[in-house]
Nucleic acid binder design. Sequence first.
DNA 1: AAATCTTACGGGTGACGTAACGATC
DNA 2: GATCGTTACGTCACCCGTAAGATTT
Lengths: 96, 96
Amino acid sequence: MELRHLRYFIAVASNLSFSEASRRLHVAQPAISQTILDLEDELAVKLLSRNSRGVELTAAGNAFLAEAQGVMVRADGAKKAMPSVSIRTRSSTIRG
Amino acid sequence: MELRHLRYFIAVASNLSFSEASRRLHVAQPAISQTILDLEDELAVKLLSRNSRGVELTAAGNAFLAEAQGVMVRADGAKKAMPSVSIRTRSSTIRG
DNA sequence: AAATCTTACGGGTGACGTAACGATC
DNA sequence: GATCGTTACGTCACCCGTAAGATTT
């Protein structure tokens, strides 16, 4: 499991749609689909139920979504915690 | 940034040694080294100072270690939170 | 010379995009 | 027929291992 799996899953789960997630992530649908399948395979749990009317979260999927979001928040926090390169101007400090 | 980067960094930081991390992870040293360099590059921060007498954590590296460990704990928690295949016996439920 | 990290390089796996398929409306 | 997800497949990137280099003790 890598953060990529969580990113893709969160995008799909948040939009309840593979195609919408594909657009948001700028990644082709089959890649998203495959990644989610791989994730479900690794966890040995069905996270989504693919109905005719789009996608629904299973109970496990709902639980995992919360967990995954927690992981991503912390991962983002880890990056943010790093002192990025500071560009000092005459009057201010711009972080970038 | 992927969990792989954090796993490798944590291993190096915990042992203050690339070679020891290599042994623990069963991954060749150059792969570890490259991954850490990539991570430092992405974060735009030096995490380790490679001295003659092994490796030391920079201030940023020390901070990032704590953050990275937090991420890994949550990532593990996410997996653990999933109902793995349950084997029901007469008196108990064994998760495997 | 031994130990350690980095740089160089080649190969195999896998992540991705395109295309084709199946299903539902 | 349009939309959505999956399967099939070829390609390119990248992760890793081996080898060589640089530095320190």
